[in-house]
Structure formats: C-alpha cells, structure tokens
Computed example of a mutant assay.
Amino acid sequence: MYNKNINMSHFDITSDIFQLYYPVSTYNGRSPFQLLLASEFANKKNEIFDRKRHLYYTFSYVVGGSGKLTIAGQDFYPRPHSMFILHKNMAHLGVTNPEDPWHKIYFDVDGWLVEELLRAYSLDDSYFFKDIYLEPYFRKMLGLAKNHANDVHEKAVIIFHKILIKLQNQSSYLNTYSTNVKKTITYIKEYLEKDISMQDISGNVGLSPEHLTRIFKKEVGTTPYLYYLKKRIHLAQVLLKNTNMSVKEIASRLGYKDEFYFSNCFKKYTGVSPLNYRKNSENNSF
C-alpha cells in the first residue's frame, strides 16, 4: 500500500514541466475495483510510453496538446477534449508532439468489476473518443486520489461508472453505421470461428475489398479485416479465461491452422502469450 501522505506536485521552471501525482494503492488481487493513482501533467515534450503488456487500465483525458497513439494496430491522434483507454494486458505506443505536448489528466484502475463494466457498456474493445467533455469527472477523480479518504474506492467507482455512461452514450451516437458496414459487422460476428479472407468479407456485401475498406475505415476507424482479427482475439481471451480448453483446442475452434500460429497472432495483438494471459487472469480472480 502506498503511503497516503505522499502527494507529489512538481513544477520545473527551466523546462515548464508541470505534474501532479497522487498514488493511492497497489492492486490486492481481490477487490472488484481499486483506484491505483491519478495524475495530471503538461509540457513533457519528450513523452513516450511504449508497453508490450499493460498491467492495469488507464483512462486518459486530453486537456491540451497533441500526439499519436497506436493500439492494436490502429493509429489515433488525441487532441483537446478527447479521451483514450489503455486496456489491461494490451500493447500500446504513445508519442506526444514535442511542438505541442500533451496536457493530460489520467487515472489507473484495476479489478474484475472494471472489465465487467467495460463489457456491459460494450466498451471492451473501444480505445479512443473524440469531442467529448469529461474534464470535471477526471478532476473529481484527481481530487479523490489527492485527499485519499477511507472510502476513496467506493467514491471512485461511482465517478468511473458515470464516465462509462458518457462514453457509451457517445459510442451509441457515433456508431450509426451505413447498411454495408452493418452487414459487414454482422457477417464478421457470424464467422468469427472460421478462417475467412478479406475477399470473403467484401463479397458478402458485393463490394470490392478496396471500396469496402475505405468506407469501413471511415465509419469504424479500422479496416474490416483488422476488425475481424481483433474480434477473434477477444473471443480467444474469453475462452482462455472462462473455459478449460487447451490452447490447441482454442486454436482449432477458431480455425487457425495450428496452435503456434494462433499463439503468435494472439501475442501480436495482446503483448502476451495465450498461456500467460490465462495465468494472469487466474492470478487476478478470486
């Protein structure tokens, strides 16, 4: 457990770097929800975060600045009034624009309730939200971490829940897809356990692969085939966590040619092997 009296703030006059950092606790592996820390910083001109496997969930709100974020093969460009989620056990890379460095407020959380709430609000494979005003909620979370009351986690989960509702409402508003994109998503979900090609996907809606890729990426933010691959990996995660199926059995069920190819694909998108993912899931459960 962190010392609750350690509340750190820093302002470097020579570099103009500003940072508030309030550690709260380390995850105990049992609680459904824990706020681990909250922080605010600005003007880190050389900020780079490159993780092959994130150990918890990070929610970041961009107050100012710009930069590039890569998650699961997708590129995003967080700017003011945007928010991004760094999911647990996933790889990501973030680089601030040194000419216009990020000013961010973020908090780290962990616990099985985090995962369940993300899934309940259909946000378990969502990473980036733009044009959304959430600064008051993030500042409340920052205040909770700073004051570190005995009921900090109980109050934090209420704020967290409100943030998810806002994100889900925006997601529902934005995801008014065209007919061809809706048909593509439905087709992909029906064939997740099959080894299908981009030609199969585009043929289902009667468009060329290039044409479908253009309209799908414009509306969804990723290509149809990458969307298909991500959904397959997510299904594999569910099977690893909730069944006793072997890696070989899961690979066969999902239509991979062998367990080694499946393991390489899984690690590429999650940053961890299937066996280690299962082991980590078991360690973080009751």
Rank of each mutant, 00 (worst) to 15 (best):
Y137L: 13
I85W: 04
K230T: 07
D131T: 03
K189M: 08
K279Y: 10
V152F: 09
D50G: 01
L118W: 08
P98V: 02
T179R: 15
K194Q: 14
S246R: 13
P80N: 09
Y225Q: 11
F49W: 12
H211F: 04
Y256D: 02
G111C: 12
N3L: 11
E210W: 06
F18D: 07
D12W: 04
S60A: 14
H153V: 14
S126I: 06
I71F: 12
F128I: 00
S178E: 08
S15V: 09
E282V: 14
K257A: 06
S172I: 10
N242I: 00
Y173P: 01
I17Y: 12
G65L: 01
Y27Q: 10
L212A: 09
V181D: 05
N7K: 15
T184V: 04
I163C: 10
H153W: 08
G255K: 03
D108P: 06
Y191C: 10
G255I: 01
I48G: 05
Y121P: 03
P80R: 01
S285T: 13
T213N: 15
L207M: 15
A156N: 05
A236C: 02
A236S: 13
T176S: 11
F129A: 02
Y256R: 03
Y227C: 04
F76A: 05
G94S: 04
I159S: 11
M90R: 13
D195P: 06
N276T: 13
L254Y: 03
Y173M: 13
L235I: 06
Q34N: 11
E282I: 15
L55P: 14
M141G: 01
P32W: 02
G64M: 07
L192Q: 06
N97K: 05
T96M: 02
N283K: 14
G221V: 05
A156L: 10
N5T: 14
S171C: 08
T223D: 08
E99K: 15
L37A: 13
N28R: 08
K88P: 01
E249M: 08
K183Y: 09
R139L: 01
S171M: 11
N46V: 10
F107E: 00
R232T: 01
G255N: 09
I13D: 05
L229M: 15
N89F: 09
I159E: 05
E193V: 12
P78F: 00
I71W: 07
P101S: 01
G65H: 08
K267L: 04
F160M: 07
N280I: 09
E210S: 13
L113F: 03
A145C: 12
G271L: 02
S285I: 12
G143Y: 02
N89P: 01
R232N: 03
E115C: 03
G271C: 06
L207T: 00
L240Y: 00
I250H: 07
A156I: 08
K183S: 11
Q170T: 06
D258T: 02
G143S: 14
H87G: 04
Y187G: 11
F266D: 00
K248F: 00
T184K: 06
V247T: 14
N28D: 15
N276Q: 10
